[in-house]
Computed example of a mutant assay.
Amino acid sequence: MPGTDVNEELSRLVARRVAGLSMVRSVRPFPPAKPDRVVARLESDHYPSVVEAVTVDFRFGRAGEFNVVYVEHWSGETWSCRWDRHENPHSDRDHFHPPPDPNNTSREALAAVYPASQSAVVGVVFDALRERYTALWENPDEPTYPSEYGFDPGDGDWPFLRD
């Protein structure tokens, strides 16, 4: 059962919307391991074979906050990033934790500009994901592993970042 601050109605709406996308294999709203989230598993054939699995977790709060976590599972490595809207003392309310490791505490979150509507943020996320898998296909025989990846906020793939 979702937590009391989870926007269940929006979460279920997003689950239905995301389930209809061709790049999505399956969607589970409020699974036992993540009862406050909608978890989408993406189609692996959209990615080079070195990427074994891809997931996107969505959490929408009643007060307009959200958290979206994208994770690629590589051979023993992960490439991940996170979109957030919530009050905190360390960054802007709307912020982005860059890849390949959004939990890296040595890097600060980047200021972001997201649509006011939580549901519109889903479009921002999937636009970024399309850019990501397109970039992976540019050189599938010699991919840049997560441990070799250097994030560049000015590369054009992240138009929601604030200058």
Rank of each mutant, 00 (worst) to 15 (best):
P2A: 07
P2F: 10
G3D: 10
T4R: 13
T4G: 12
E9T: 11
E9H: 09
L10K: 05
V14G: 02
V14E: 00
R16E: 07
R17D: 14
V18F: 01
V18K: 03
A19V: 09
G20M: 09
S22R: 07
S22W: 09
M23S: 07
V24Q: 03
P29Y: 04
P29M: 02
P31A: 07
A33N: 14
A33T: 08
A33G: 12
K34W: 10
K34Y: 13
P35S: 10
A40Q: 05
L42M: 01
S44F: 02
V50I: 12
D57R: 05
G61I: 00
E65V: 01
F66T: 00
F66H: 05
V68Q: 05
V69Q: 06
Y70I: 06
Y70P: 01
Y70E: 05
E72L: 06
E72K: 12
H73T: 09
W74C: 06
W74N: 02
W74E: 01
E77M: 04
W79V: 00
S80I: 02
R82K: 09
D84I: 00
H86R: 15
E87L: 13
N88W: 11
N88D: 15
H90L: 15
F96K: 01
H97I: 01
P98Q: 02
P98F: 00
P98I: 01
P98R: 06
P98T: 04
P98K: 00
P99E: 01
P99Q: 05
P100Y: 01
P100T: 00
T105V: 10
S106G: 08
V113F: 14
Q118F: 00
S119P: 11
A120Y: 05
V124T: 14
V125P: 10
A128V: 10
A128R: 11
R130K: 15
E131C: 14
E131Y: 13
E131Q: 08
R132P: 02
Y133L: 04
T134E: 11
A135M: 05
A135N: 11
L136N: 07
W137P: 12
W137G: 07
E138W: 02
E138D: 15
N139E: 15
P140E: 04
D141G: 04
E142F: 08
Y145A: 06
P146F: 00
S147D: 08
S147G: 12
E148L: 08
E148M: 12
P153C: 04
D155M: 05
G156V: 11
G156C: 04
G156M: 14
P159H: 12
P159K: 13
F160W: 11
R162H: 08
D163Y: 15
D163G: 04
